[in-house]
Simulated assay, not measured.
Amino acid sequence: MNILFLSIGRLNNIEDRGIYTDLLREFKNNGHNVYVVSPREKRLNKDTEYINESGIHFLRVKIGNITKVGLIEKGISTVMIESLFLGAIKKYMNDVCFDLIIYSTPPITFEKLIRYVKQRDNARSYLLLKDIFPHNAVDLQILSKKNPLYWYFKGKEKKLYKSSDYIGCMSQANVDFILKHNPEISPEKVEVCPNSLEPLEVNKDETIVKKIKEKYNIPFDKTVFIYGGNLGKPQGIDFLIKCLEANEYNGKVFFVIAGSGTEFNKLKAYFNSNNPNNAQLFEQLPREDYETLANSCDVGLIFLDRRFTIPNFPSRLLSYMQASMPVLAATDVNTDIGKVIEEGEFGYWCESNNVKDFNQKVAYLCDVKLQKTMGENARKYLENNYTVKHSYEIIMNHFK
Rank of each mutant, 00 (worst) to 15 (best):
M1R: 09
G9F: 15
L11K: 12
I19R: 14
Y20R: 12
D22S: 13
L23H: 11
L24H: 11
F27T: 06
F27D: 09
K28I: 05
N30H: 14
Y35P: 10
V37L: 11
L44A: 12
K46N: 11
T48C: 09
E49M: 12
E49T: 15
E53D: 13
L59M: 11
V61F: 09
K68Y: 13
V69F: 06
E73R: 13
K74Q: 15
I76V: 15
I76K: 15
S77F: 12
S77W: 01
V79Q: 04
I81Q: 11
F98R: 09
F98L: 11
T105Q: 06
P107N: 11
T109E: 06
Y116F: 15
Q119V: 09
D131C: 06
F133E: 01
V138A: 06
D139V: 02
Q141T: 10
Q141F: 05
L143T: 02
S144I: 06
K145P: 01
K154V: 03
K159W: 08
L160G: 05
S163L: 08
S163K: 09
Y166T: 08
G168W: 10
I178W: 07
L179H: 03
P183R: 02
E184L: 04
I185F: 03
S186W: 07
P187K: 03
P187N: 10
P187R: 04
C193W: 06
P194M: 05
P194Y: 11
S196E: 10
L200Y: 08
K204Y: 02
T207R: 09
I208T: 13
K210E: 13
K213Y: 07
N217V: 01
N217F: 07
F220R: 09
T223N: 01
V224G: 02
F225Y: 14
N230S: 14
L231N: 00
K233R: 15
K233I: 14
Q235R: 08
L244K: 02
E245H: 03
N247G: 07
Y249S: 12
F255E: 01
V256N: 03
V256K: 02
I257L: 12
T262L: 00
E263T: 03
K266Y: 00
A269S: 14
F271H: 00
N272G: 01
L281Q: 02
R287P: 05
R287M: 10
L293K: 01
S296D: 02
C297N: 03
G300I: 05
G300S: 05
I302L: 15
F303Y: 15
F303D: 03
D305H: 15
T309W: 01
T309D: 00
N312M: 12
R316L: 07
Y320A: 10
A323C: 05
M325D: 05
P326I: 01
V327Y: 01
V327D: 03
V327T: 04
A329Y: 02
G338E: 10
K339M: 12
E345L: 07
E345F: 04
C350T: 15
C350L: 07
C350S: 13
E351W: 08
E351M: 10
S352R: 02
V355D: 05
K356E: 15
D357G: 04
L365T: 06
C366M: 04
D367L: 02
K372Q: 14
N377M: 04
K380F: 06
Y386M: 10
T387C: 07
H390M: 12
Y392Q: 05
H398F: 10
